[in-house]
Design a protein around this nucleic acid. Structure first.
Lengths: 122, 122
DNA sequence: CAGAATCCGTGGAGATACTG
DNA sequence: CAGTATCTCCACGGATTCTG
């Protein structure tokens, strides 16, 4: 999000505060992947085929600026950069985990419906 | 979000699936308020001073289309419309609650820092 | 490999006015 | 009160090219 108006959430709604940090279009997914393991740049691109290189960079920079992720650059050739969650970023895990749980159940629900249609149960 | 590409999430990442439903800029906040109580249109506007009337309408329509909220129109004068969570929408509560919890703690953390600065502890 | 820089189109979103 | 309709603008984000 970052653009919910100059930093302060109106009536300091806590959900709005949270969305100011993880509300970016791809931030949830990025955090989800970094929860499992430290990742390199192109590795993340492969994990998220839908995001452009430019967007990935921008979102990573914002997350870094907010102290959620850490960016470790190794001065080698060819370049190597690793992204990982900071301790602060770890505190967001419960949110992402709930999102994963919900998404999993929703997908199963969808599959179920498709099967029903296939078998003319619907 | 709704625009993560024609309906199917890549590699069906569950977090992406979830964000397709609640990833809209204001959807989290809307759901948060509807968790507490059924709300009328202008009531919600007051709860969210940052959102424009147009945006509120659009986000509500998307949530309705996705089956997350219910819109009850009473044929009276002046008009009265009430928004509430559907049973399906209720299943999103754990996510929003985690967001609220995190936002609350984050705000306290911020306050703490401000106090420290005030008292030159920092 | 991990980006930065540039160009450019689209639609996200504000402001305003109108209506049942 | 609870919206719709229209006009408008800018920044979000894609595609492409260049670099250490």
């Amino acid at each position: 999000m970052r653009n919910r108006k100059a930093g302060y959430a109106c009536k300091h709604c806590p959900v709005e505060t949270t969305l100011d940090i993880i509300g970016g279009k791809w931030k949830g997914v990025i955090l989800y992947h970094l929860m499992n393991k430290t990742c390199r740049f192109n590795e993340m691109r492969r994990l998220m085929p839908g995001i452009s290189q430019r967007m990935l960079t921008l979102q990573l920079r914002e997350l870094e600026k907010d102290g959620v992720i850490h960016r470790e650059v190794y001065p080698v050739v060819p370049p190597k950069t690793e992204y990982s969650l900071t301790a602060f970023g770890e505190t967001l895990k419960p949110i992402i985990q709930e999102m994963k749980r919900w998404g999993d159940r929703y997908e199963h629900h969808q599959e179920q419906q498709l099967e029903d249609v296939d078998q003319n149960k619907a």
